[in-house]
Design a protein around this nucleic acid. Sequence first.
DNA 1: CCAATATGTTTTAAGTCTAAAGTAATTTAA
DNA 2: TTAAATTACTTTAGACTTAAAACATATTGG
Lengths: 169, 169
Amino acid sequence: MTLNPGRRRANGSEDYESAAAKDDKLDLRLWLRLISCTSMIENTVRRRLRKEFGITLPGFDVLAQLDRAPRGLSMSELSARLMVTNGNVTGLVDRLIIRGLVARRADPKDQRVQVVRLTRKGRALFGRMAPAHHTWIGEMMGGLKTGELQRLYASLGRLKASARSALDG
Amino acid sequence: MTLNPGRRRANGSEDYESAAAKDDKLDLRLWLRLISCTSMIENTVRRRLRKEFGITLPGFDVLAQLDRAPRGLSMSELSARLMVTNGNVTGLVDRLIIRGLVARRADPKDQRVQVVRLTRKGRALFGRMAPAHHTWIGEMMGGLKTGELQRLYASLGRLKASARSALDG
DNA sequence: CCAATATGTTTTAAGTCTAAAGTAATTTAA
DNA sequence: TTAAATTACTTTAGACTTAAAACATATTGG
């Protein structure tokens, strides 16, 4: 039997974060809570994408990036946007090509560059998935008012900038 | 050559989030920014743990949970706290046992239950890693004042509760 | 008791991911 | 021009991850 991430906390057990949240520093508690939020939402989205559309979350992420780039994206651009390695993207795109959802061709201007774009089939599938995905995210954030979402968005922007400035070392 | 997650954005390319952030709904932008923050911090921590201590991030996460549970944790408790499947934990623990960092024994009260705990070696290693880890997190959050970290922490708590209430469906 | 059910863990198959090494095309610079 | 360096991508090895099935032990209801 699978754990079913969506129901795993039906009992009273602790999750990733709550084990720590007693005597720790604010920094650490915030980081654990960030992981906790992200994992929870991500696991729910993964499960629903699989169940409703038969696609993996990384596959969906690739299609989403390509949907926003009508001219296509190079492998490196894809890898930067998804924040994963180039080698990872190679495999993801390979599998989407097999399913006929994306196409890959060499850039005529630079034969090193592979340009990936949605096929008509891929665009159609993403068009069906996107509204559902948006609805799910909206439901999961439904407990917060717009003002709080905006403040959260702004604070995370500053956190992102702060984290980026500490990337090396 | 590897992408080196820590330096990948030295050029002016877009990342996961910024591709979307124009005409989208607040919900979606917030979600993408959440992924963005988490990935950035996670990739940095992963890279440094590997480089400084020769351990993977998931391995570190297991040790961190066990460090907080002196009596040990069952496989299911570990899986709930890490928010990953039971099957995943089996492999993680197997590899840590090979390295002598954790031990696993059957619970005498219930032979189905495997109780995992840190070995002395595992505890010693975690004792060296934890301060470094804490420092890294502190650096990455250094751009935010305590008050903002507190507000962020509180908002993410509400987001977590909201997301949890929408898990099914 | 004992069959059915539930619970805890492991196994399996397929996919995801990183880090490092390898290949190919382009650019740089002597 | 052309060797060296750079850039874009792929390959490789090993680890991570999920979902589903399989297995083992406990519990429950007859």
